[in-house]
Design a binder for these strands. Structure first.
Lengths: 217, 217
DNA sequence: GTCTATACTTCGATAGAC
DNA sequence: GTCTATCGAAGTATAGAC
């Protein structure tokens, strides 16, 4: 077939000679509107077709720009990936904190955890992180932050509902919910739905048992 | 950087002109020893560096063969991917059935489910399936078979231990275990371990509660 | 800030000799 | 069954004009 990108590019697979010293190469400002469009296009591409589809040429095309502009705003494609991830993670983190501040309950955590696009996003990045060190570090960092935020909310929800540690520890409940959400989403991507209804209703009844109804439906 | 492969290749990303009719191109026999070596090398590469590292050239190098031999044994790279998957899935499936025939218990299912290489393998393929139709179909097929085999074992284990459906349905228990195993493995790949000990011991005690000790430790 | 042009690398795939 | 040779496409990245 044709050439491509994912197998050896200077910056993509090995570290590459970074030429740390000289290099007067110009880089666009972070608050540029064009830069935002590039990130939008790249994120869409990532979600729809996987990280392998995120090439400077395709991103440029999707954004209606010359592919070279991608290189103007991002020194390497790794930089672009890290930025896509950071931007999205930061946004989701805020959304999370806002929702949990408004209603710190088990069911809110469950609702947020089962957002499919969030899972697709993180699966794609875990696969990507599998072989790109710079990206792995970034993801690990946000994974910890996410878990901390969720744990905090879950802990306060447990306190409120009087759930004790000998029933289940908040952190265990969190990993359980995260895991279930992940399998369900992955399955769905494949078109597999065996047992989904039973599992969802099990989780929901477990939540209802631990955290009896109070106000919202 | 350099060229590469994963972004547009004729057969990799779009369907490509398959030229279904003519094409007298020769293909090696399925029982060839060389073919096996190619599959071994490709599987290792996939596990260690991700699917993007599986190119005909790199596979050839890893197997100590000319890359063209990869094309001799596999018409397209998609064919190679499907074969890697099929071979491994079939092997795991047999291993599964053997282990569960010997000891059809909840804890055996848990032990098998938490094999990290199995999870890494399937994550990699789910990411791959995200944008390759032919592969997705294959994975979905095996996912169903796996689940069926596991479910059968779990159902018989539940019967044996007298676990009833109003505690938890076998299929729900299966998805729960699969999900937890997935999160744990993914986390570990990133170097994140927050809450793992608590979660593992929760699962183990849940298993012990549902399925009281009998013989093996 | 954006564009044209271009260097260089790797990829998938095939043809044809041995 | 394996090798040499080669095509054509796509990728990352840079230089330099506008």
């Amino acid at each position: 077939m044709s050439g491509g990108r994912l197998a050896s590019g200077r910056s993509l697979w090995h570290a590459g000679a970074v030429k740390a010293t000289s290099s007067a190469r110009r880089i666009g400002t972070v608050d540029s509107k064009t830069r935002g469009r590039i990130l939008d296009a790249a994120e869409r591409l990532l979600l729809d077709e996987g990280y392998a589809a995120v090439t400077s040429r395709r991103v440029g095309a999707k954004a209606g720009l010359k592919s070279q502009l991608v290189h103007y705003y991002f020194r390497t494609m790794d930089d672009l990936f890290v930025e896509i991830f950071r931007r999205r993670a930061e946004r989701d983190l805020r959304r999370f904190e806002r929702a949990l501040a408004a209603d710190p309950s088990l069911r809110t955590v469950w609702k947020l955890t089962t957002d499919p696009s969030g899972t697709v996003f993180s699966i794609e990045f875990v696969a990507l992180a599998n072989h790109r060190k710079a990206i792995r570090a970034e993801i690990a960092h946000y994974a910890e932050r996410f878990r901390a935020a969720q744990l905090k909310a879950l802990t306060s929800a447990f306190d409120k509902s009087g759930i004790t540690a000998d029933q289940i520890a908040p952190i265990a409940a969190l990993l359980l919910m995260t895991g279930v959400a992940q399998v369900l989403t992955l399955d769905e991507q494949l078109g597999v739905k065996t047992g989904h209804d039973e599992t969802v209703s099990y989780v929901q009844s477990a939540i209802a048992r631990l955290e009896p109804e109070e106000a919202n439906p």
